[in-house]
C-alpha cells in the first residue's frame, strides 16, 4: 500500500554561523566550523538536507576547577592544571570546538585579572587549531572586564564570547564588533526573552550571522523538559519565518548534568542508582541527546567518553536510511 508521507513546508530557515578564522581569513585556526542552516525540524532529511551537522564542544577551565565532579578531574588528570594542555587533550578526545570557561578567582583565591584571562586565551589558541568559544565566570561585572581583554587578545580569530545576557550584553557585543568575534546570547528558557535579546544585540549593529543563542537548559531530572520544549518552540518559530529566532542554538548539557547529585556523588546514594561513572556519563549523554532531538546545534560537554558517544549519535542522526 503506497503511503503518502506528510511533509512540512517551512518558509524560514536557520542562519549559518561560522566560528573560527584560518590564516587566509586573518586568524590562526586550522579550520573553521559552520553550524545552522536547517530548513526543517531536526534530522528531517526527507524534507530538506541539513547542511551542517551539530557539533560537540568540550568545556575546559583556565585552572583546575574547585567544584567539578571528582570523576571529571580524574579523567582529565594533570591536563586540568593547564588550559593549553587541557585544550590539546580535548582536541585529542574529539572536540569540534573548545569552550574555555574562565574562573572568577585564581587558585590562590584572588580575582582573575583581565591579563590572566588574555594569557589563558592566548595559550589555548596556541595549543589547538580548533575554533574557540570563551565564557566569562557568569557574573556580569567580571564578564565584562575579562571578556573585553579576551576579545582583544584574540582579535581576528572569530571566537564566540559568552555569556551575553540582558544585564551585560552591551559591553560584550561592542567588543565582539570591534574585534571581529561572535557572541553567545543566553536567556532563561523563554521564547520571547530569547527573541528580545537577539533584537537588542542586532540593534547594536552586530550582524545576525555572528550570534549563537543559548536558550538555557536544565539537566535530566532537573528541568530538562522546559529546555526541550523551549528549543522546539524556538526552532518552530525560526522555520515559520521569525527572523529573530533564526539562529543556531548552543546549550550546555555538560555543565548541567555534572552539577547534579547523580554525577557528583558516588557514596551514600541508593544502590539502584547503579555504577557511578556510567551513571554520570549516561546523565550527560542522555541530557545532550535529548537536546539534539529538540534542535541543539552545539552541545558543550565535559567527559571524553560522553563526547565519543554523542558524536556517534550525531553520525547516526545525520545518516538518513
Amino acid at each position: 500500500m503506497p503511503v503518502e508521507i506528510v511533509k512540512d513546508k517551512w518558509p524560514g530557515s536557520v542562519r549559518q554561523v561560522t566560528l573560527g578564522a584560518t590564516a587566509a581569513e586573518g586568524g590562526t585556526r586550522s579550520h573553521t566550523v559552520t553550524v545552522g542552516g536547517e530548513a526543517s525540524l531536526p534530522f528531517m532529511h526527507f524534507e530538506a538536507p541539513m547542511p551542517n551537522r551539530p557539533r560537540v564542544a568540550i568545556e575546559i577551565k583556565d585552572r583546575r576547577p574547585d567544584d567539578w565532579s571528582p570523576l571529571l578531574l580524574e579523567v582529565w588528570g594533570a591536563a586540568a592544571d593547564n588550559p593549553a594542555e587541557w585544550a590539546k587533550a580535548a582536541e585529542q578526545a574529539g572536540a569540534d570546538l573548545i569552550v574555555l570557561a574562565l574562573s572568577l578567582t585564581k587558585a590562590d583565591g584572588s580575582p582573575t585579572q583581565a591579563a590572566d584571562a588574555a594569557a589563558s586565551v592566548k595559550a589555548v589558541l596556541g595549543a589547538t587549531g580548533l575554533p574557540l568559544i570563551v565564557f566569562g565566570p557568569g557574573q556580569a561585572e567580571a564578564d565584562n572586564e575579562l571578556l573585553v581583554a579576551v576579545a582583544e587578545a584574540a582579535k581576528g580569530e572569530r571566537i564566540a564570547l559568552g555569556i551575553c545576557e540582558d544585564k551585560n550584553y552591551r559591553t560584550i557585543v561592542a567588543t565582539a564588533m570591534a574585534n571581529g568575534h561572535l557572541v553567545t546570547a543566553r536567556t532563561p528558557m523563554d521564547v520571547n526573552l530569547a527573541k528580545q535579546l537577539n533584537i537588542l544585540i542586532s540593534d547594536m549593529g552586530l550582524p545576525l550571522d555572528r550570534i549563537l543563542m543559548d536558550p538555557t537548559t536544565g539537566a535530566l531530572g532537573y528541568g530538562i523538559e522546559y529546555g526541550f520544549s523551549v528549543m522546539e518552540r524556538l526552532r518552530l518559530a525560526a522555520l515559520q519565518g521569525d527572523n529573530m529566532t533564526q539562529l543556531p542554538m548552543l546549550v550546555t548539557p555538560g555543565f548541567e548534568a555534572w552539577k547534579t547529585k547523580e554525577s557528583k556523588v558516588g557514596e551514600g546514594v541508593p544502590a539502584d542508582w547503579g555504577n557511578w561513572l556510567q551513571r554520570a556519563i549516561n546523565w550527560e549523554v542522555m541530557t545532550a541527546v535529548t537536546l539534539l532531538e529538540s534542535g541543539a546545534d552545539i552541545v558543550v560537554l565535559r567527559h571524553p567518553e560522553s563526547v565519543a558517544r554523542v558524536k556517534a549519535v550525531i553520525d547516526g542522526l545525520m545518516q538518513p536510511a
Binding site: 530538562i224 523538559e225 547523580e262 539502584d272 556510567q278
Partner: peptide
C-alpha cells in the same frame, strides 16, 4: 538491564511526559 541506565531513562520519561 543496567540500573545506571534504567534510572536516568525513567527520569527522562517522567520529565518528557509531565504536563507542561
Amino acid at each position: 538491564f543496567a540500573p545506571e541506565l534504567a534510572y536516568p531513562l525513567l527520569v527522562l520519561r517522567e520529565n518528557i511526559y509531565t504536563d507542561p
